[in-house]
Design a protein around this nucleic acid. Structure first.
Lengths: 343, 343
DNA sequence: TATAAAAACGCAACCGATTGCATCAAATAT
DNA sequence: ATATTTGATGCAATCGGTTGCGTTTTTATA
């Protein structure tokens, strides 16, 4: 439990009668240090149990090899997979990953941004909280040239990297699928409309109906606060209590889709024949519920990996022309039995 | 995109004609600075847009306000909830959280430990990888007096903090519950036996059987590699193909328990009457599968919170007598329909 | 009023690595 | 043999706070 003294490059320098600068360069494979010296220094460093102090290095270049992530909540399948992708990619390049949850509250997001900024992260990956409408809290990063990658829940602003899926098309195809299955009265569980992911899914749904000459009944579109299981049950009840209930539901997430299936079943509704359901995300519960939930596969891990790569490429091509890229990753319709009618 | 100059305490010092040390002290509410001065300095600091550089501070005290976490994989319900608890608690005290995944490989865990060490984290929270058997990679932390908290998947060593559940009792009660439901041939899906969580659950199961004069059939105990869904299906098939199949299964996690239910149902087995099933963890899928899975509620978030607290208390009572605490959190049997027989 | 005590603040040395520029030696060119 | 490159290494400033100790100013005490 005693605090052993830490070995620094100065200790190595003294022992080897080299200057600290030489030690530093050798350890970083600087070309102006001879091969032999480099080898020797590295060997001795290892023998002495030297461990680089990344803090010192970070202070010097005013940037820690760290990527910050701001998300709503970690313990959701999509989010944790996203983070997993980020971490994996970042670590391969020797970067640490700091996480911070907003719990979908704007206030927290602001505080977290500040803390992350103060830790001199070299890049920030953000999936906006449900509440967030202003982005002033991200200004400091932009001013300092710290790259930001928005992922999934992104803002409108053009001057930033984005990693997203084509929510519109996904929504369109999900709705279209239900239409193809013979549904004519299709409801939609929508999320907060100021978040791109939900507004676009809804737009896709609307257009799919229109293109197939179906009208989107006002009563059939329910906008959720948080897309929770409980909300889903309530909404489903509301729908089923309508004089003419829907025969299909496209839910903006799997949680509410599953709640719809389970609630409808309780009411004796046959899934999918009387009510076809399709969700979004492909959470684990989607393949467990019976009938298994059709859904849109959301490439969470890949989105994380790509986001991290965007940050990392800034570190390498520093000062290069930075052009902001928007990457749109493909989704996949995963048709299971909750929407597949026997014809 | 231009890099605005950062405001430092020196800038404030110059403007206010104070010494940098005074600025530093004021910003940290040091008692030896007068109330008025402190107020003034804070006000001006804010006006100037000062943002503390935590790197510099960290370097000076050789300790960044950061907690490191080493876990197997983030995107699992238990783990992400655990992290969520850690993050939440840490952030309240102004600490960052760095995560690193081992993917259950020892090699990764070693590398991650090194990286975290080099970042001068002020504490480490570890849930051991499935492979890990040696702990040498954690030595540096111990030597430096950096607190380690083992959580859930912990080693035997006594000189460390631990946050665990009483796996033995949980296993005992899970098995006992099946017995109470009238099961007499109870199988067990076990995890790797060198990990405490799995060996203890098994022990609890064994003892419950013994105490109720049931014998634990060799064929009924299946030890898994990774407790995956696929493994679970295979194991269930194996069990059901036995001349005298079991009438109950206690699975060491929910994933395999659910796979057992789904597979058995496919074979026409009635759950729970012909086969009662109970799992472990209370993952989201547990309440979705039909019949809903009985399980052991694992207080993941609380475990995370408590782990973080253990680390934080070191920061406060530094140099105090450090005694290692093992916290055993309560679990709860959650009985659902997968094991509840109508009598 | 003189003096001790407390309060408020300044000085300067850190923490450990990085890096532009200077230096010196060896190698190559003239 | 001398001038010029090239290669290898050292010097010293720097990043931005923190903190032990010394100094000055103010307040309290004798």
């Amino acid at each position: 439990m005693k605090a052993n003294k830490e070995i620094t490059i100065y200790d190595i320098a003294e022992k080897l009668k080299y200057a600290p600068s030489t030690i530093s360069r050798a350890l970083n494979d600087h070309p102006s240090i001879s091969k032999n010296t480099t080898l020797l220094i590295k060997k001795v460093a290892k023998e002495m149990g030297y461990r680089p102090n990344s803090l010192a290095a970070s202070l010097r270049n005013n940037r820690s090899k760290t990527i910050g992530i701001m998300i709503s909540r970690i313990n959701r399948p999509f989010v944790s997979s996203l983070i997993s992708g980020v971490e994996e990619t970042a670590r391969k390049s020797g970067y640490n990953v700091i996480i911070s949850q907003s719990n979908d509250k704007y206030e927290n997001e602001v505080i977290n941004a500040q803390t992350l900024y103060n830790s001199r992260i070299s890049g920030l990956i953000v999936s906006l909280s449900m509440e967030t409408r202003k982005l002033d809290h991200l200004r400091p990063f932009i001013n300092q040239g710290i790259p930001i990658v928005f992922v999934d829940r992104v803002p409108d602003m053009a001057d930033a990297h984005k990693v997203i899926i084509d929510n519109y098309t996904a929504g369109y195809r999900a709705a279209e699928h239900l239409i193809e299955q013979g549904c004519t009265r299709i409801a939609h569980f929508a999320g907060a409309q100021h978040r791109n992911v939900y507004s676009e899914r809804k737009k896709g749904y609307m257009d799919a109906l229109k293109d197939h000459n179906l009208k989107a009944d006002k009563d059939f579109i329910i906008t959720f606060e948080s897309l929770s299981f409980e909300e889903g049950e309530k909404a489903t009840k509301k729908l089923l209590d309508l004089p003419i209930p829907p025969d299909g539901i496209f839910a903006a997430n799997d949680t509410t889709a599953v709640s719809a299936i389970m609630y409808a079943k309780k009411r004796g509704i046959k899934i999918p024949d009387e009510l076809a359901v399709i969700g979004f995300n492909d959470d684990p519960i989607a393949s467990i519920v019976e009938p298994a939930l059709s859904t849109v596969i959301h490439p969470a891990i890949k989105m994380g990996q790509l986001s991290a790569k965007r940050i990392l490429q800034h570190a390498v091509e520093k000062d290069e022309e930075v052009l902001f890229e928007t990457s749109i990753l493909p989704t996949e319709l995963c048709i299971r039995n909750s929407s597949l009618k026997n014809k």
